[in-house]
């Protein structure tokens, strides 16, 4: 797409979309939102980038190597947090009983492993959106 208005607006908007996505992702335990919503926002910002600037530039920002690491990393972070539960408390994905700090309910640092799990889910969902879109778009242009 070779339109200066679209390019400028996208360039201004994309950082704010991503920032808001991260905000939603990190506040999943105190406000509506969470890993799915935040990850979908970040993924959509990359979809917008791909639509405006083309697949080649987007591939430079989010290469297949990064996508491999993000996808495996998100799910491995989740499983690793579950294994901590097995070691500390004897059952998979234990939260407070496994020694995660509970904090004051309602504050930013609360909920034990819930924010960490939300980050894992968010990385996973975002990279899935981007990779699936890249795969479909690539095929069309080849």
């Amino acid at each position: 797409m070779n339109d200066i208005i679209v390019k400028t607006v996208a360039r201004i908007l994309i950082p704010f979309i991503q920032l808001y996505g991260i905000f939603i992702m990190l506040h999943g335990h105190v406000s509506p939102g969470g890993g799915f919503a935040g990850g979908a926002m970040i993924g959509t910002s990359f979809v917008l980038y791909t639509l405006v600037f083309g697949i080649d530039k987007s591939k430079k920002k989010f290469s297949e190597r990064v996508s491999e690491y993000a996808e495996s990393g998100g799910i491995l972070l989740y499983i690793a947090l579950g294994l901590i539960g097995i070691i500390m408390a004897g059952s998979f994905l234990t939260n407070i009983d496994a020694g995660f700090p509970k904090g004051t309910p309602g504050s930013m640092f609360s909920g034990g492993m819930i924010p960490l799990l939300m980050i894992g889910i968010g990385i996973k969902v975002a990279s899935t959106f981007i990779t699936l879109f890249h795969t479909l778009i690539e095929e069309e242009e080849a």
């Binding site: 335990h29 969470g34 609360s110 799990l117």
Partner: peptide, 25 residues
Amino acid sequence: SETGAINVVGAILADYRAFDTLGET
């Protein structure tokens, strides 16, 4: 009191039913 998260949807998603969410990832 059990999870420390005041958003009950988040608490169910990532604590009570975290195994569901693992399957979904």
